[in-house]
Amino acid sequence: MLNQWILIGTLAVATYLSRIVGIAFMAHRNMNPTLRLYFNYVPIAIITALLVKQVFIPTGGRLMLSSPVLISCFVAAISISLTKRFLPSVVLGVIIGLVCRHLIF
């Protein structure tokens, strides 16, 4: 429990600093356009890496593909591409993944 509070406190400080530093110190400076582009791509890379870690699960020292997770992600991806609606796409992805898990895999 103490570790959780330390984690929360540390994350709160780190996150707030990243917000206030941008406003207080970077507002009147010209940032290198290359660095700006780099920062734009960082969230894409991190979210993708997280997805890979969720789809390929370490089991007994080996990586195993989780088909229900993969299918649910595909369904959500196709749904949001077609409908542009976040919430229904998430719900649909979860339902299809659940159905796959219980009926197919």
Binding site: S18, I20, V21, G22, M26, I46
Partner: peptide, 14 residues
């Protein structure tokens, strides 16, 4: 690393 983009957001919104 994930929060680095906040620097950009802050600069743009300042």
């Amino acid at each position: 690393l994930l929060n680095l983009r906040n620097l950009l957001y802050g600069a743009a919104l300042a």
